[in-house]
Write a protein that binds this DNA or RNA. Sequence first.
DNA 1: CGTAGTTACGTACACCGTACGTAATGCGCT
DNA 2: AGCGCATTACGTACGGTGTACGTAACTACG
Lengths: 237, 237
Amino acid sequence: MAGRAAVPEVIWARPERTGRGPRPAYTRADIAAAAVRIADAEGLDAVSMRHVAAELGCGTMSLYNYVPRKEDLYELMVDAVSGEHELWEPGGDWRADMLRVGRQTRELMHRHPWLPRLMSPVYGFSPNALRYLEHCLACLDPLDMTYGMKMQLVGMLNGVVTMYVASELATAERTRSLPWSEEQENAARIGYLGSQVATGAYPRMAAAFSEDPGPIDPEAVFRFALERVLDAFAPKG
Amino acid sequence: MAGRAAVPEVIWARPERTGRGPRPAYTRADIAAAAVRIADAEGLDAVSMRHVAAELGCGTMSLYNYVPRKEDLYELMVDAVSGEHELWEPGGDWRADMLRVGRQTRELMHRHPWLPRLMSPVYGFSPNALRYLEHCLACLDPLDMTYGMKMQLVGMLNGVVTMYVASELATAERTRSLPWSEEQENAARIGYLGSQVATGAYPRMAAAFSEDPGPIDPEAVFRFALERVLDAFAPKG
DNA sequence: CGTAGTTACGTACACCGTACGTAATGCGCT
DNA sequence: AGCGCATTACGTACGGTGTACGTAACTACG
């Protein structure tokens, strides 16, 4: 009877070390770091139990002593990179602070392009996620609003950032392991889109595409999106 | 020489029937419908090439005559359910129209809980996606704004809806195939969260949780979120 | 000091996406 | 009408996946 758990468990509630038995060879941080290293270098799909175990230098099944399911390995990864969030002393200007939070999250996701795909509301309980959320709330202290509303604001900000970066990265991530280049794939899609629009079935989209887009600055577009969210919750005027 | 394509192809650009050879036994719609049926009934992870083929009643590898990669099967699925969007003649009240669009998308995602997970910006070129986008732009005709801005509005609205519904469904989808119930898993997470907040390390979150949430009406919260987005782009006053 | 609980990990199973080869089919052309 | 060949159909096979289970080594506690 090895006493394998058949009860729902949050990985963060399970202690890393119980005291009995041989000293574990690795820490959770080790494992998360190994998985993150693989995901950064070879993409999320390369993160398999075997691969991570090999990166650590241990047998595949040994991993299951630390992590009951692969899903939990993902949770470890998300928490690990969440720890890269730089938390500062809020300066009293909640707008500036929240913009900074958003920009930082975007940079984080550019550094770890697999993050948007793993971003899930159920991962919101990890230690670093809690610290991050508390920090956001601290930034919002100057704002006169219920905490419930502030949570909604933070949630929507995170959601918009995630979606935005996901769309920035989607094709790149998707074509990483395909035999043709991202440019080729994009060209194929744009070409088909053009042919469809040319049929005249989508007059407004045709107009949209013939419109002069003006100078395109991704940073500015991103900032604009963030400000729309902030405006929505606390109109400037 | 069977002439297997080694060139990037958008599945929508490849004709369903070339005219030569035996008449294909199924249509794209048949295949998409079978996959959707499986995803609805058994979850997205149950959608495998073998399973879909069995549902259709053909050999596994025959599917590859219709769909070059599994990824394309996903694209077919998203397009198929996108066709469930009811498109109406816009009534001139763009706010009401957009709210209706958002509500419909949410219902669609509740009907097909796997949709948020498949929602990807690269799928925006399918026939039904194009019709949907054109319809959104038609709803926004009364709004004096560049098409670029309107596209951003639609994008953000879709993003917020997707995120919102994803968080509504995440735990349900996650625990569908787990040995314990969703309630158990939720209870475990909430319990752990409470214990963490009780340490006093997160004063604002503690305050948030002790705050009287008032009556909770999911529909109202959703509507509120949508209206925040609309307000952001076109302030009411 | 025994022993119970843990760690480590090899083996095995069911399932996955899909490359490839072959047989049957029926359209388009002469 | 009938030939040629592109296309469909699909069985087999390969390398990968998550993980259940059994066993051997180890160590902290009673």
